[in-house]
Amino acid sequence: MRQFLSGRPAIAFAMQPSRTQHVLPEALIQRLDTIGRVLDAAPMQRFDDERAGKLLGETEILVTGWGSPTIDAAALAQAPHLKLVVHAAGTVKGLLGDSLFDRGILVSHAAQANALPVAEFTLAAIIFAGKKVFRFRDFYVADRSRKRTVPMQAEAIGNYGRTIGIIGASRIGRRVIELLSPFNYRILLYDPMVGEAEAATLGVEKTELDALMASADIVSLHAPSLPVTRHMIDARRLSLMKDGATFINTARGALVDETALLSALKTGRIDAIIDVTDPEIPEAASAFYDLPNIFLTPHIAGAAGLERTRLGEMAVDEALRFIEGRPLLYEIRREDMARMA
């Protein structure tokens, strides 16, 4: 067991309540108060007021979430006893900086928990794309008959024997591969960090990005958004896709040259299922809203509603491991920051 000022570690929260409903239900807060000492169940939404100054002065474990204020040098100056930051969400980019690592404060996050609903959403998107579900729906509703949908069932649709291209063996990408394994899919993977031996272990065929774009019936994007990956899906690569193929993006909008994507979609040659755009909300006149071969959702693939409780559970589990002196399962180190989405 680690040593704390009063025997049990002092725990505080920093997140925006309107964005984090269900993350820490009462049962989880009570569990934290059993293994530690919750200073105040109401989360801090700023670090520059009197209440925050008092709480930070005692805090040894800080549980953060969406909408948390930045843990910068000024905030750390008020938190002399802080030992652990547990982020009950995914990326910590924009939340903390080098000053935290300089102090030796440990950091953990719940990106693995957030990966699960994204992967489940992607699985559903792949299955629906393979069966052209959205096109069937549109024709059926428009015609009020099965005049067009019955002949479509004789086309080369469905999920048997489809080739799925996964771009990025991230947490989400790997979970998608795992979820696809019971189906009769051929799975291609592009990830320069994955070797042939690991690809074989994952049950996928390692390939180059251009070859994946040209071979896959359905392409699903799971790469991190970094300067080097900006617009990695451009007009040339989109032109490689098969006629009738579907492009799925549940990662980040900045990975795609969206002008090129919309141009390709306007031809009707490919379809798209898009959960993320750049900017996050397209302008009102954007073709993202109007094209019939785009299925657009408002960044809902990640943890929503009750799925958010997984984030809180993972954060509480990490806090318990820290208190008991065990290694963190999802620790973030300084060198990880450059590779994080």
Rank of each mutant, 00 (worst) to 15 (best):
R2Y: 07
R2L: 09
R8N: 11
A14K: 01
P17V: 05
H22W: 06
H22R: 13
I35R: 11
A41C: 09
A41L: 00
M44V: 00
R46V: 11
L56N: 00
E58K: 15
E60V: 06
I61G: 02
V63E: 00
T64C: 10
W66V: 05
S68L: 06
P69E: 04
P69D: 04
I71Q: 07
P80V: 09
L82W: 04
K83D: 03
H87A: 11
A88M: 04
G90A: 15
D102P: 06
V107P: 01
A113E: 05
L123M: 12
L123P: 01
A129E: 03
K131T: 08
D138N: 14
Y140W: 15
M152W: 11
Q153T: 14
E155M: 15
I167N: 02
S170A: 13
R171G: 08
R175W: 02
S181T: 11
R186L: 09
Y190V: 07
D191W: 02
V194I: 15
A199F: 06
A200E: 12
E205D: 10
D210R: 09
D210F: 12
D210E: 15
A211M: 03
A216F: 07
H222N: 14
A223V: 12
T229V: 13
I233G: 01
I233C: 05
A235G: 14
A235M: 10
G253R: 03
A260T: 03
G268Q: 10
I273T: 00
D278I: 04
L296Q: 05
H299T: 10
L306E: 14
E307H: 13
M314Y: 05
A315S: 08
A319Q: 02
R321K: 13
L329T: 12
Y330I: 01
I332D: 00
R334V: 10
E335V: 10
R339P: 00
M340A: 07
A341K: 05
